[in-house]
Structure formats: C-alpha cells, structure tokens
Simulated assay, not measured.
Amino acid sequence: MGTKKLHPSVEKFKLFTKSHPLILKEVRSGKKTLQDFFEEWYILGEDDPSWIKYEAEGDNKKKVENGNGEGGWMTQLGSVLQKLDVEQVQGHLQNLSAAIAAVQNLIMQFQAPAQGGKSPQPVQQKNPFSFRKD
C-alpha cells in the first residue's frame, strides 16, 4: 500500500509544528485542535508574533536577547540613543529655531500694513453684572 502525498502547505505546517512544540502540547491537552492551529497558521503566516508563545522555552529567550521579544523595544531605543550625535541634533534645533523666527517676522511684516500702522484698539469689556435699578 502506497503512502499519500500531502499538500505542500500541510508539509510546511508539519515543519512549523516541529519548531513550535508547545502547539502539540495544547492539542494533546484538548485546548485546541490541530485544525484550529492550521487555520490560524494559514491565515496569519508563520512569522506572526502570536506564535512566539508556542516555541520551546530556550527559543523564547533567544528572541528576547535579539530584541524581538518583550524587552526588545527598550534595547532598540537604547542603541539608537547611543548612536545619536548630540551636537548634530543641537545644530538642527538651532536651524529650526531660526526658520521659525524668520516666519514669525514675515507674518508680522504682512500684518502691519493690513492694520494701517495703527496699534490694535482695546476691546471694551461689557460688565457681566449689569443690573438696573427699580
């Protein structure tokens, strides 16, 4: 009797479950069926972060150390801050400040002729407690 040839996606899923042994543990415990896992794998793909929890414990530690785990963004932020050139950032901030000042001066120059060179008239405030005598 010959063996049946499996569909290529099923073959890939079999390889995937070998690298994620906790999937088979959940199937054996009855929490989910293998069909459920296959459908999730087919839709999400094998690179989805939700599969990390099904890897062997040693594999999870490697991912965290590489910066792909839970503490990864802090490590990445630290490395970015170490590479940051403070003097270059300071120069960019000075250029930005000068550009903003130039735009403000330009706006003030266009507003002055529109007002006719007059200072703005103070607005008279109405008394909020206007009572009439009876």
Rank of each mutant, 00 (worst) to 15 (best):
Ala99Asp: 13
Val103Tyr: 06
Phe38Val: 07
Asn68Met: 07
Val89Lys: 14
Ile23Trp: 03
Trp73Thr: 04
Lys63Val: 08
Tyr54Gln: 07
Glu57Pro: 10
Val123Gly: 03
Gly58Ile: 07
Asp36Arg: 00
Gly30Gln: 03
Val103Ser: 09
Gly116Glu: 15
Lys31Ser: 11
Gly45Lys: 11
Val89Tyr: 07
Pro113Trp: 05
Leu77Lys: 06
Gln76Lys: 06
Leu84Trp: 14
Val89Cys: 12
Tyr42Pro: 00
Tyr54Ile: 05
Val103Arg: 08
Ile100Thr: 14
Gln111Leu: 12
Leu34Met: 13
Thr33Gln: 10
Ser130Met: 12
Asp48Lys: 03
Ser19Leu: 05
Gly91Cys: 07
Leu84Asp: 09
Gln125Asp: 07
Phe38Trp: 10
Gly45Ala: 11
Val80Tyr: 08
Asn95Ser: 15
Val103Ile: 12
Phe37Glu: 02
Ala114Asp: 08
Gln88Leu: 13
Gln35Gly: 03
Pro21Tyr: 01
Asp36Glu: 12
Lys126Ala: 15
Ala102Gly: 14
Ser119Pro: 06
Gln121Ser: 13
Ser9Gln: 14
Phe110Ser: 05
Gln90His: 12
Lys25Leu: 08
Met74Val: 12
Phe13Arg: 01
Leu24His: 01
Glu65Leu: 11
Leu44Asp: 15
Phe13Tyr: 03
Gln90Phe: 08
Gly72Ile: 07
Leu96Glu: 14
Trp51Pro: 02
His20Ser: 06
Pro120Phe: 10
Gly116Pro: 06
Lys53Glu: 14
Gln121Glu: 15
His7Met: 01
Asp36Lys: 04
Lys12Tyr: 01
Gln90Arg: 15
Val80Asn: 03
Gln76Val: 01
Gln109Pro: 00
Leu22Cys: 02
Ile43Trp: 04
Gly117Phe: 06
Gln115Leu: 15
Ala56Glu: 09
Gln94Pro: 00
Arg28Ile: 03
Asp59His: 02
Glu39Asn: 13
Gln115Thr: 15
Ala101Thr: 14
Ser50Met: 06
Val64Cys: 08
Ile52Met: 09
Ala56His: 04
Thr33Leu: 09
Lys4Phe: 10
Val89Leu: 15
Glu46Asn: 12
Leu81His: 03
Gly67Gln: 02
Gly91Leu: 12
Gly67Val: 02
Asp134Cys: 11
Thr75Trp: 02
Val80Gly: 03
Leu24Phe: 01
Ser50Thr: 08
Ser29Met: 08
Leu6Ser: 11
His7Asp: 07
Ile100Asn: 11
Gln125Met: 12
Trp51Arg: 04
Ala101Val: 14
Asn66Pro: 00
